[in-house]
Design a protein around this nucleic acid. Structure first.
Lengths: 133, 133
DNA sequence: TGGTTTATATAGCCTTGGCTATATATTCGG
DNA sequence: CCGAATATATAGCCAAGGCTATATAAACCA
């Protein structure tokens, strides 16, 4: 059963938005007392109804809980996913910087790249980055 | 005007499928006399009507021309896009291999990553890969 | 408190990119 | 040349992830 690379990419994509949301909620949650819809609207640069609707999906999928006054919380699953991605993000930024990409650009590109890095590749990158420090 | 990384990723994604198609048509075109719908169906692993419909969009967007007996041709714009992406793909595979990712995995991951690598990052990667040869 | 502002919800629309079922057209073997 | 097999087209459905316009709810301040 050879894996179809296009199918992999399509599958990755299905979880991209979810990953972005939980990662963002996770990061914002470290700065603020509460994360609200409006914070996501601002950070993501999308319209407010888009965030509301997406949060419903994430709730349905067990990644977040949205409480009465819109306090948004990650579930255990959501938090675990978020910390994985966050870690991967930081690693990719370091990796890109290590090969000469400016920090700002590395941050931007990592946001897209992080959704397509397999475990195997992540481990290789981690070794490489460690070896450079 | 700071660029919103999420907006960038969303924008990248809009062109991902188009990029995959033209890249594939480009690659298949080097092996075969003609590229047909059925070839794309097989390579992409999607249903045939999906390919037909997507080709219509690509034609509308000026990337391909679909001729009577379904001979699929890239337009100048399509071919140019395809060769850019193809080059980027090859580069990313080399890059990943250079840091210890096995070829097969590198190929799979590159398929997703290639859509999110900026010019700046691509240049940095190219320098890095050259420096290692 | 009451009015204004701000936040969230709801309705309704759109495109993309999937799918299945089925019709039509093309090609190929006998 | 005709019938079977293969290729493509068409119809119709779905979910995700966008959007605008507008209603409602909450918060804040005078």
């Amino acid at each position: 059963m050879r894996e179809n690379p296009y199918a992999r990419t399509r599958e990755d994509h299905r979880s991209e938005v979810a990953e972005d949301y939980v990662e963002l909620i996770y990061r914002l949650g470290r700065d603020r007392a509460e994360v609200r819809t409006a914070d996501l609207v601002e950070a993501l640069g999308v319209a407010q109804p888009t965030v509301t609707k997406t949060l419903e999906r994430l709730q349905r999928d067990g990644l977040v809980n949205v409480h009465p006054r819109r306090r948004i919380e990650l579930t255990a699953a959501g938090a675990s996913l978020a910390s994985d991605i966050s870690e991967r993000h930081v690693l990719i930024v370091k990796f890109l910087q290590a090969v000469g990409v400016p920090k700002e650009v590395a941050e931007l590109d990592a946001e897209g790249i992080e959704h397509h890095v397999s475990e195997t590749t992540q481990r290789a990158i981690a070794r490489f980055v460690r070896g450079r420090q």
